[in-house]
Each structure stands twice: as C-alpha cells, then as structure tokens.
Design a protein around this nucleic acid. Structure first.
Lengths: 188, 188
DNA sequence: TCTCACATGTAACTAGTTACATGATTGC
DNA sequence: GCAATCATGTAACTAGTTACATGTGAGA
C-alpha cells in the first residue's frame, strides 16, 4: 500500500542512496520534474518505507557536519518499484489553475489578462530553455541508447518536460495574442 | 480567501445558474477540463461562497423531481472572479504520475512498460479525438471572434486540452517506440 | 417492491502545505 | 555572539477522496 510519494522516493533511492535532507533538496525542486514534496512529508514517508522493508538506512557520522541517515533501496523495494512502473495507471487527475483561469477569461480586463499571459509565457520559455540546456548535456551521455539505464529514464522525463513547457508557452502566446486586439479597443 | 475550487464554481455559475448537483455532474468530468471535484467537496464550498455573498440561491420546486437549490453568482462574485483571473499565479505544481513512472522505467520489463505506454497513448488519442470533435462544433459558433464571450473562453481551454493531450500522446508513442526494440531483445 | 436518477448533505480518511521546534557545525 | 547551512523531526491546517446517510419521484 505504498503511496505515489513513496514510489517517488524509491525512484530516487534506486539511483543512489541519499539522506532525507538530500531527497528533500531534490523534491522541493521536483523530480523529473513531475513530482515534488516538502521535507515534512518526506521524513515520515521514509520511516513508513523502512517499516515496509522497501528501504533501509545507516547513520553516517561526518566530521564537519551533523550526522545523517543515509537511506538505500532494498531488493524488495526495487521489485515493488519496477512493478509499480508498469502497473496500469488510474486516469490521471489533471489540475491546471492557469487553464481554469482561462475558462473565466471572458469576464476579465483583456489588457490585464494579456499581460498575465505574456508573463506566464516568459516563465515557461525560461523553464524550457533550462531544460534544453539539460538536454544538450544529456545527449552527449552514452547510456541514452539503452532504455535500461537511469540516464535514458532521465532523458525520457526531460523530453516530457520540454514537450509540456513548450506546449504551455505556445498556448499562452496564442491566448495573449487573441486578447491583445481586444485590449487596444478599450483604450486606443 | 476563496479557494481555487471556489473560483471553479464561480466560473461555472458566471455562465449560468445551476444546482450543486448540476455542478457536481460537470466537475466530476472536469471543467475546461482542467479542474474537477466531487459533490462532497462542492456542497460545503457553495455554502462558504454563499456566506461570503459571492453566490446566492433559490429553492426551485419541481413537479416531477425533488426540489433543488439553484445557485447564481452575485455582482461581488463576478468582481472577485474577474480579479482572480488576471492575478499573478503562484507557480503551478505539476504532478504527473505517468512521468514519475518514466523516471524509474529503466528498472522495469521493457515489454510490459511498452504495453502500458501504448495503452496510455490510445487513451490520450481517444480523448484528443473527443476534443477535436468539440472543436469542430465550437468553431462554427459566432462568439469565437470576441474574447469577451464565454464561447471564446471555452474555446481557449479546449485548445489547451488539445495541445496537452496531443503532446502527451506523442510522448507516450515516442517512449513506447524506444522501449520496443529492447523488449524484442529479451524474448526474440 | 425495487431500482434508478435526482438531490443534498456529513464523516472519516489520505495527501500535501505551512509553521513550529531542535540541534550540530562553520564562518564572520 | 550570530547568521547560514546541514540535518531531522512534529503540529496544525487545507484540500481532496471515499464512504456513509437520507430522501423524492418515476418507471419496470
């Protein structure tokens, strides 16, 4: 009965052992980057995974910093993760506040709406540029040809990030462009 | 201090008055379709909106069916909604379980992973076909040229749905195609 | 009588966010 | 002494899901 968050943590630990703190640092930015969590959710979840014997940890003393618990995935954890990956997903709940706003955009001031969308377009193009940089770097890696490497899996999620952000940026641009003529009409 | 769900409800009521039951029917499918909710969340939220005077209701008796509360948006509600639409969105939390799975796909059986992805591709192409049908119908409507009509706003969310689903379906197809040669290698 | 669609609610739970709390060690 | 980073946790709250609960009226 592992939660999606649990599988997100297992997915990180399958690549390398880490502390809760390290996981939190990754997950506050996002994995893949299609999942995220705060440390307050991560620490209890790690404890649960350990009870279920899907992860294990050892306390690592450090000379220059406080001691930490370094978690590793167990064989049972790897099996559970590999199984979850191919299990039929229940239909995903899409939630996009931006698109929800668009549903009521007909009520709004077109100038302000267009400005908000242009800003969103900028943000998503920026994220896209960041991903494109990652992609350039990753495409030089040798593991990419083999879908049984973590590099390949990282590349797959990155492609999704690029597709997602570029579609979103294009939509923002399209919608802003639709609103801009109406905005001029009010205040010429 | 209205929640996102509250604005989703206001967005529906801004178009026409409805009962909680009607809203639930729409929101269990999804608005726009980028937001959804169950009736157990809708009824209390409508009550809150009414306390805040953003909506109002009247009990409508019916001869053939049980009586219902028909909610309408108030002027204050319309102002709050129009204001929210253009307010700067805090960065959206993307959560995609499918993409999270891809992050650990290197551990999975490529045959089963490819099959799962082909099935997802099929589901998203089906949804896409449905949206394309809606688009054909909507594009005949006259309101589309004016961004101050609800038809335009519906069209905008539909475009987003089409972009989203087609990007997702393409990505599923790409990833499945990458996995299929590896799948053949195991069991020739 | 029984099932189905309409109609409205509450209770119990899971997931996720924000805030609170503590302590080690380093560098200023 | 104080702020910053590393490190781990808990508490209180909000959002969302699943399950429970009740009642009307139509049609088989």
């Amino acid at each position: 009965m592992t939660s999606t968050l649990g599988f997100a943590l297992l997915g990180l630990l399958a690549r390398q052992p880490r502390s809760g703190y390290d996981i939190a640092a990754q997950l506050e930015r996002g994995v893949g980057p299609f999942w995220h969590a705060r440390h307050s959710q991560i620490y209890p979840e790690l404890a649960r995974l350990q009870v279920d014997a899907l992860v294990d940890f050892e306390v690592v003393e450090q000379h220059d910093r406080p001691a930490k618990k370094v978690y590793s995935i167990t064989d049972a954890g790897r099996v559970a993760l590999a199984d979850w990956v191919v299990s039929p997903p229940g239909q995903a709940a899409i939630r996009s506040e931006l698109t929800l706003r668009a549903y009521s955009i007909w009520l709004a001031d077109p100038r302000r709406a267009a400005a908000m969308l242009r800003e969103q377009e900028r943000i998503h193009r920026e994220q896209l540029a960041h991903y494109e940089g990652d992609r350039q770097r990753l495409e030089r890696s040798p593991g990419l040809a083999d879908p049984r490497t973590p590099e390949f899996a990282t590349y797959a999620t990155l492609r999704r990030g690029i597709g997602y952000e570029s579609e979103l940026a294009e939509w923002c641009a399209w919608l802003a462009a639709e609103l801009e003529p109406a905005a001029e009409q009010i205040e010429p």
